[in-house]
Design a protein around this nucleic acid. Structure first.
Lengths: 203, 203
DNA sequence: TAAGATGATTGATTTGAATCAATAATATGT
DNA sequence: ACATATTATTGATTCAAATCAATCATCTTA
């Protein structure tokens, strides 16, 4: 357990167990069996995990580190996700449809990712009795999350989303250059900076 | 076939066949078997299909007519979807999680809807050999669509989305009060009105 | 079909965030 | 640890869309 490889493997097992248990009662052996299908991938800071135009062959979870997902649009970038430990991060549409990705993935820290390849996932879906069901339940939850985010966007003002974000994710302000947080919230860095005064005044 | 009930049934069969065939090769008999699980629901113009706070018990498709999906937010409404023939319309999250809906559904025209109840869907998922797989594939496509819409929102300016919408859905300007279209595009009716000049100038 | 209600258009004004710009703070690499 | 590059802050200005307001068009229904 002092071996760093062993440590990351243990952590992976914890994460994937927690992830799968959300959807289905599974024994430790079953989880470990599925883990056999997975691989760990290691990235440096500021490394590109997936380039725009590449097909994402992996369905992935961050085990440690931090990944940003973004699109390029007219010389600019728009951050779509900031994924930390335990979060899934991939180009879902590219992975699911086997088409070139519109998004890019880049690490903001040295990062370890636990991934399952597309072909192995298909194999597992078909091979295990509850595979399809598990797949359906995972997709269902993914869908619900996206729906909730959309609702959130529609219902809240920019200021509300800002306040909610900084109060719910205070650690992220330490970890992530705030221009990325600004982009994620769909505002300019200058505006983000100015909005911080709102928070301070509340204290 | 001159019988109006027969007509709507035929149309339902066409729609559901097309819908299911997107995901899985199915015989006419198999589709008709699934249709047994469904029911047709009829609504007048301006009738509420689903109220905020109610749990949506149906997974539904518009056979004829038009339905708007919206949330109430601070005395206002935000339109999330305008569903016409062949479109799915329900409170997905309410249906999938069995919790009170945040959205409301209201018809803008006399409308016929083809629906399957939650419990019957569960039964069908379990009963038929490819049920879970079909369910997974449908959810997958739903997810992809939502993802694409999100990407669209992130990548395009308000003006671009406006122009794209009015050129791709010219009939909707006839069918729907434009304050709803404006809300759907996240702009004020006055702004929508003014943007129409852009289109005319192009001609 | 006429009256009232609802929706659309157009103009004038306000407002909030983007942009532009300059400086300060922080991070990065050698 | 230093020099350079990147990021954050703050102020001044611009700009686009919201708001306010009045009129016109259209739908509804009695």
């Amino acid at each position: 357990m002092n071996n760093p490889i062993q440590k990351v493997t243990t952590r992976s097992l914890e994460f994937i167990t927690e992830y799968l248990q959300r959807y289905m009662q599974m024994t430790k052996d079953e989880v470990e069996l599925l883990l056999q299908y997975c691989e760990l991938r290691y990235f440096d800071k500021k490394e590109i995990i997936l380039k725009e135009g590449e097909t994402d062959n992996y369905f992935s979870m961050v085990v440690s580190g931090l990944v940003r997902k973004y699109i390029r649009v007219k010389k600019n970038e728009v951050i779509l996700q900031l994924a930390t430990e335990g979060h899934m991060v991939h180009s879902e549409t590219s992975f699911l449809t086997r088409t070139p990705s519109l998004v890019e993935l880049e690490t903001l820290e040295p990062t370890t990712i636990l991934s399952i390849r597309y072909d192995l996932m298909q194999e597992a879906l078909a091979k295990y009795p509850n595979g399809e069901r598990l797949g359906r339940l995972i997709l269902t939850r993914m869908y619900i999350k996206k729906d909730e985010r959309k609702h959130d966007r529609a219902a809240k003002t920019m200021k509300e989303r800002f306040l909610e974000y900084v109060t719910n994710h205070p650690h992220m302000l330490q970890r992530v250059p705030q221009k990325y947080l600004a982009s994620y919230l769909n505002i300019k860095p200058e505006t983000f900076s100015r909005l911080k005064h709102l928070v301070k005044e509340k204290k």
